[in-house]
Amino acid sequence: MTAVSKSAPGPGRSAKGSSLAPVSSSRKIKDRLVQGLVYAAFALAIIPLLSVLWTVITNGLARLDADFFAFSMNGVTARDGGGGAYHAIIGTLEQVAIATVISVPVAVLTAVYLIEYGAGSRLAKAISFFVDVMTGIPSIVAGLFVLAMWMLTLQIAPEGSGFAGALALSILMMPTVVRATEEMLKLVPGDLREASYALGVPRWRTICFVVLPTALTGILTGIMLAVARVMGETAPLLLTIFFTKAINFNPFDGPQGSLPTFIWDQVSNPQQTSLDRAWTGALVLILLIMLLNLGARLVARRFKPAAGR
């Protein structure tokens, strides 16, 4: 303690008697500088977001008319006005619906295995790890895989089909839904399960009728966000659904349209009429995605009180 008192002019002690001498200006400047940088970083991120939204909305409004939702591109060339994305919207909705139907049961069951059955086992660890890795698969690789397996090896609809596209999308959806479901199952209190077991209810019925319904809204939120994510995927669809300008309701036979590939196709032409359609396609796509995001938020909000305990 003597050392403390002898340690000559103490740190931060100003020459005058005041103990509350202001912090040295270099420290203050550094603090302010970092604050400025941090604010600037946020502003910098907002600029592209606003620019993207602004250009998509202003340019997209030009062709946001009834025709756009009522007609396909059949017989319409790049130079022509008119034409629409009816075929593409149909295709996107069908493909996303099929992808959801395929991926959700697998993903939810996988999550159930990870949380309720396999917890801690080596298999569960491996699955969990690869689910993480799967979230990082480039979307185009998912497309190549479906191309290589489904279309080139099994020779099913090698000329492209909406279903092949849906298969690729379902691979991209799976990990997201598994993770979301897992998080929700973890939130279900353990005593709820035990209460059910104590009544002699078999495990599978407990999971199906007690655990999953409790977590339902949370899982729904996760599914909606996953759908919103894959709805905008373009790359895997290029390799699997190919192109058509015409309406094709049948996802199992022949090329199908989709909103992302519609935009990709339209932007490849330099004509303004074509670019207008691309912008409007982008606007419709963003609106669909935002709607799903918003829906997911609303569902999540309803869930909150239950998760809060």
Binding site: T2, A3, V4, P11, S24, R27
Partner: peptide, 22 residues
């Protein structure tokens, strides 16, 4: 101490030892 601009090794050593003894 470093926050307050004490950088000299000798002075730091001395105060650290004094504080730990304290």
């Amino acid at each position: 101490l470093k926050l307050n601009g004490v950088r000299r090794k000798g002075q730091l050593d001395e105060i650290v030892e004094g504080s730990l003894r304290g």
